[in-house]
């Protein structure tokens, strides 16, 4: 009897173990398939980047039209060429110029946009909603519409061929994207904190610097990262406003290697592209955690 009852139990146990095993194998099979697929997609997506990286080691004649990744006649000659600079201007001049603009933009945007955002979010003043709508409207305005008028204004101010046209706006909170981002963040902070400070006799400056600003850190970090990357990669602004190779930024210098009407040095351009990418990559890796954190916080509170 006991045997008879035990047998079906053991059988059932064995059966379920078998089923589990089968399920696991099936899961394992599916997971291998999924990973293979994901890897294949990864290869496709990463191929251009890897191609660019490997091409930077190839001689110029081997780059265009070749899909192969392995350099046949590889070497660091392109990097040597890129580091030599172009048009009599050193490579490091371009790096410094780009850094001046990028760091200037970050400082400008953090300072001006946080002030503006605080005003919009916490200070009641006449016409606030009208100004707010105006600010949002500038976000909707395509950049191309304002190129020419902006150029004429800066030209009349005698600011062409200086960094002012590229930085001035950043210090005047014209980057409405960042203002908006910060407004949304401040609106998510509890008003009770301000009210408590008011009871303690704090005015707006005190509330801003002692309470809001420290709490805004995630929004500030996100803005700083975006401002840096955008400024570093900006091509069009510098192209219009900088009129001397010694003032040029990295993206402009990058293009100087390729000219349709004369001979082009694609190798040096690839090498330069890799070198231009490095700071942004490093910046990204260093602040990746804050970047993701910042964006996530925006999502929750905004």
């Amino acid at each position: 009897m006991s045997l008879a009852t035990a047998t079906p139990q053991t059988e059932r146990r064995q059966q379920s173990a078998r089923l589990r095993r089968r399920a696991r194998t099936a899961r394992g099979g599916r997971s291998i398939l999924f990973h293979l697929f994901a890897l294949a997609v990864l290869v496709v997506i990463l191929y251009p980047a890897v191609w660019m990286f490997m091409s930077s080691f190839k001689p110029s004649n081997d780059i265009i039209g070749s899909v192969s990744l392995v350099p046949t006649d590889g070497g660091f000659q392109n990097y040597a060429k890129a580091l030599e600079g172009i048009g009599g201007v050193s490579f490091w001049t371009f790096v410094v110029n780009s850094l001046i603009l990028a760091v200037g933009s970050v400082v400008g945007i953090l300072l001006s946009c946080s002030f503006a955002a605080y005003a919009f979010a916490r200070v009641k003043f006449r016409g606030r909603s009208v100004f707010f709508v105006c600010m949002i409207a500038t976000m909707l305005l395509p950049f191309h519409v304002v190129i020419i008028p902006q150029y004429i204004v800066f030209n009349n101010l005698g600011m062409i061929n200086t960094y002012w046209p590229l930085l001035l706006g950043k210090f005047l909170a014209t980057e409405s994207f960042f203002v908006f981002l910060m407004i949304q963040f401040i609106r998510g902070l509890p008003r009770e904190l301000d009210e408590a400070a008011v009871i303690d006799g704090a005015g707006h400056p005190r509330i801003f610097f002692s309470i809001i600003l420290p709490l805004m850190k995630p929004a500030l970090v996100t803005s700083a990262i975006f401002a840096f990357i955008w400024s570093w990669n900006d091509f069009f602004g510098p192209l219009l406003y900088l009129k001397e190779p010694s003032m040029y930024t990295m993206p402009l210098a990058l293009r100087l290697y390729v000219d349709q009407t004369s001979t082009s040095d694609y190798g040096a351009q690839m090498a330069m592209a890799i070198l231009a990418l490095l700071p942004v990559l490093l910046f990204f890796f260093a602040f990746q955690r804050q970047l993701v954190g910042g964006v996530a916080t925006q999502g929750l509170k905004g």
């Binding site: 172009i86 048009g87 009599g88 009129k243 190779p245 100087l256 290697y257 390729v258 000219d259 009407t261 004369s262 001979t263 082009s264 040095d265």
Partner: peptide, 12 residues
């Protein structure tokens, strides 16, 4: 001021 188009070699 003087501006032209071209590559590095031409600039030299």
């Amino acid at each position: 001021t003087f501006t032209w188009w071209g590559n590095d070699e031409r600039a030299g």
